[in-house]
Design a protein around this nucleic acid. Structure first.
Lengths: 145, 145
DNA sequence: TATAATTCGGATAAAATTGTCCTTTATTTA
DNA sequence: TAAATAAAGGACAATTTTATCCGAATTATA
């Protein structure tokens, strides 16, 4: 609706890893994909991106998998995940797709979009993985289906 | 950023047609595509959709082209164009792509998205083609580049 | 009535996104 | 040290979106 599939899977995966890391569990791609209901191999690719961007931490070999440091659960905000996967088009782009659209030379929708975009950015910048995972833990929110 | 390319072109085209119809001019796809800086043939397809949805009016043959009735300039709101081209996924979908995500069984981002989506919907439902075209007329806004 | 201009609509192509598969590399443990 | 397990990464396939092309239908006008 707003993000690419890749980004959606990325967020869901990161939240699930956070939830499990809170319990001290390291999780495999297989388990992640099962739990967030996403294609395994594709999810693996996305996790590689998150790993390269230091958003999650990966460990190879038996007992390996993905985890997130307690500290990072607070420090990693959604905007970092979105940026790592979808780039910054959400922040930069014009609602009507114009290359040069800004306050000086605005498209007809520019001003109307400013608020919406600002709200979105603020939300993404202020929402941490920890916050999202704890909602899950309490059973208030869900990641599947 | 938020809409598909098709939808972006559709909105830009409709606004341009409105602007010209205000001057009593009927415009061809060629002119439209030139003025809004979009691929001609693709734009033609999108205009067909807008025509079928009674958002713009088309006339075949020489002196033919696209136009919008003065009345429709006020009645046609952006949400009608978005719906005609992108469907209602903007309104319906879950931010994280979950099939069953609602207030009863919300995804971790559900509540955070409700506001943003509501703002967007309100904006689209209340913005008319006439309003957008007048900004262009006065030279306050732009459709190109 | 013939011609030219224009939209309509179908078929197809190109590009981007989504998704799969398989080999390599690192690491644990028996 | 050998075997087994898991992520990394490259090549490829399927699907969706974006884009082009061309003949058919419509209509103004010479």
């Amino acid at each position: 609706m707003m993000f690419s599939k890749a980004c959606e899977y990325g967020i869901r995966a990161a939240v699930y890893i956070t939830l499990q890391s809170l319990e001290g569990r390291r999780v495999s791609v297989t388990e992640i994909a099962e739990e967030i209901d996403s294609p395994v191999a594709f999810t693996a690719k996305i996790l590689q991106q998150l790993t390269r961007n230091n958003i999650v931490h990966s460990v190879k070999g038996p007992t390996g998998g993905f985890e997130i440091d307690r500290e990072d659960m607070d420090d990693v905000k959604l905007n970092m995940i979105v940026k790592a996967i979808d780039g910054d088009k959400i922040y930069v782009g014009c609602g009507l797709g114009l290359k040069e659209c800004n306050a000086n030379k605005p498209c007809p929708l520019h001003d109307k979009f400013v608020d919406i975009r600002t709200n979105l950015r603020t939300m993404l910048q202020s929402t941490s993985l920890y916050e999202l995972a704890t909602g899950l833990e309490v059973g208030l929110t869900y990641l599947k289906r």
